[in-house]
Design a protein around this nucleic acid. Structure first.
Length: 517
RNA sequence: CGCGGGGUAGAGCAGCGGUAGCUCGUCAGGCUCAUAACCUGAAGAUCGCCGGUUCGAUUCCGGCCCCCGCAACCA
């Protein structure tokens, strides 16, 4: 019986069109999902859109349309992005305006309330008339709004619901301290992993929780901001967007229907959130608190199992680590990159050129350099030169690949021993760059081998021994690119397929895999 | 003393107690199977600054300077 595995991205907030950070996150999550699927796991992978809250309400107002119309438009942009990035079609796409999610969020609220972790409190906010916005202390400069320093701030008192976040300090610390174990494929060897990856982020959140937690507001007055899920049994309040959005990770797998009434998706919550050992979440570093502390506390408050792992990405920046922003005009549009370089090139860049956990830059220039060096000159060129030799000399390994293919079908994702250790370790640690590095090291070794042994000469030799050497060298090279093709499957599925087909048909690619730009 | 990350060749990064490594770029040579691709070699770094520990520090400790995030509505 196949084991279940659940991985999710953070739902991007639809106040703007998809950016490269989200593309990176979902490409990584998809690569993990594909690898798990190839390894015989039954995989639920989740993404979607976070659609409530003040910013969206305002955006819709600006555009002069209903919020629902606005979010429908933007959500479809996100949905359209998935095939462009080569995300497997099995991915679940949840919208926080979906009916069943709305209902789940309300049930979640009631459950947390019933367990005594929600209370009502007077909440005073500073409001800048100039901006028409509430201001937090951190936004103020010397107690005044930096944009409107001459106007004084209005203090508004309103009643909000609060979540008893402070009650979960100890449980959160326990969660961080207990390490989850992950087994390497079917072997018994297991490695210890922090709850938050990388460990530096775990230290960061741990330190934050250790300092003490403040309860936070989880509702807004409907009269001021109606675009949210209604708080159960209170006409005047809607949920704060985070409280609602985070619930998607459980509503996506059918909670609470399968638990409460056992009808819509019977047992699915148990399967994906319990039997898996918990969900694996990807998020950006700005989401560290929400995902690894607030959400975990909410789950605990509702009596539900916590996540298994939270993987924290860095940001994609412009040159020199400068933040990308529309006003600086230094953003990079993932759709435009795919259009120019192709889906797998985009996946390649996100997986191999960007740092797996820290900030790293992406510009069109860098993208092009990496593309030419590693895809056109590296991978693509190697496949061409090896296949050309194999084709013209009639040397093939296709007939020897049958057993291997059979084992793939039985859900064993096996890569050749020359690559196994590093490659597998990278996947286990969610350090996909490490796995990609391992693949690219085979490319380098193979190019060198061709240079040193010159099999293209040997196979034409009159000498039988030279001829045999040449043949065996070409077979080695074919095995190498076969290994590369297999190993690339989770990362660059289309390219992987093309490489394998070349080998099976013993034909060099009709057109280069990656044309030089 | 709010929290965290970082400062290593032109660029992007790795190393973390004992001849300073990788990728891209630059220059020179080689090869011709390949997408003017590939291979080899060279140039290029007082490892942010100052002290300390040590036989020995880029690596450990202390101080300082500079960048960059976060600070409870941005992946």
């Amino acid at each position: 019986m196949s084991k279940p595995f659940y991985i999710t991205t953070t739902l991007p907030y639809v106040n703007s069109i998809p950016h490269i950070g989200f593309a990176t996150e979902i490409i990584r999550a998809d690569s993990i999902a594909r690898w798990k699927r190839a390894s015989g796991f039954e995989v639920f992978s989740n993404t979607g859109t976070d659609e409530h809250g003040l910013k969206i309400f305002q955006k819709a107002k600006e555009a002069g349309i209903e919020p629902q119309v606005y979010v429908d438009q933007v959500a479809s942009k996100f949905k359209e992005l998935l095939p462009i990035l080569g995300i497997s079609p099995e991915v679940n796409f949840i919208r926080t305006t979906d009916k069943h999610h709305t209902k789940a969020a309300q049930t979640f609220w009631q459950l947390v309330d019933k367990n005594g972790f929600i209370y009502k409190k007077n909440y005073s906010v500073k409001y800048c008339i100039g901006c028409e916005l509430e201001k937090t202390e951190s936004e103020l400069v010397e107690g005044k709004c930096p944009l409107h320093p001459l106007q004084s701030l209005e203090i508004i008192n309103e009643e909000n619901y609060f979540f008893r976040f402070s009650a979960f300090q100890e449980q959160l610390l326990d969660l961080y301290d207990k390490s989850s174990s992950s087994s390497v494929n079917n072997s018994t060897e297991s490695s210890r992993q922090p709850f938050v990856i990388p460990e530096s982020r775990q230290r960061e959140i741990r330190a934050f929780v250790e300092r003490g937690l403040d309860d936070f507001s989880i509702s807004r007055l409907k009269s001021k901001m109606p675009w949210g899920i209604p708080v159960p049994e209170d006409e005047e309040q809607v949920m704060y967007v985070w409280f609602d959005a985070l619930v998607n990770y459980v509503s996506a797998v059918g909670w609470p229907d399968d638990v409460v009434a056992d009808k819509a998706m019977p047992g699915s919550f148990k399967k994906w959130c319990v039997e898996t050992g918990g969900m694996v979440q990807y998020c950006g570093k700005d989401n560290l608190r929400q995902q690894s502390a607030m959400w975990q506390a909410m789950l605990l408050a509702a009596g539900l199992p916590t996540s298994k792992t939270v993987i924290v990405d860095g940001f994609v920046t412009a040159d020199g680590g400068v933040k990308m922003s529309k006003s600086l005009g230094n953003t990079v549009d993932p759709v435009a990159l795919v259009k120019e370089f192709g889906t797998d090139a985009m996946r390649y860049y996100c997986l191999h050129e960007l740092h797996p956990f820290e900030d790293s830059p992406c510009t069109v220039e860098r993208f092009k350099d990496a593309y030419n060096a590693n895809l056109a000159n590296g991978l693509g060129n190697l496949v061409s030169r090896v296949m050309k030799m194999a084709e013209t000399s009639g040397i093939t390994i296709a007939d020897k690949l049958k057993t291997y293919e059979d084992s793939l079908k039985s859900g064993k994702f096996i890569v050749s021993a020359i690559l196994s250790t590093e490659y597998m370790a990278g996947l286990e640690e969610y350090n996909l760059k490490k796995s990609m590095d391992a693949i690219w090291s085979i490319i380098a070794v193979s190019d060198k081998l061709i240079q040193v042994k010159q099999p293209f000469k040997l196979v034409k030799s009159e000498d039988d021994k030279d001829k045999a050497d040449g043949k065996s060298c070409i077979e080695t090279l074919l095995n190498n690119i076969h290994t590369i093709g297999v190993a690339l499957q989770p990362f660059m599925p289309t390219t992987a397929q093309m490489i394998l087909e070349c080998i099976y048909n013993n034909k060099m690619p009709a057109t280069p895999l990656f044309l030089r730009k």
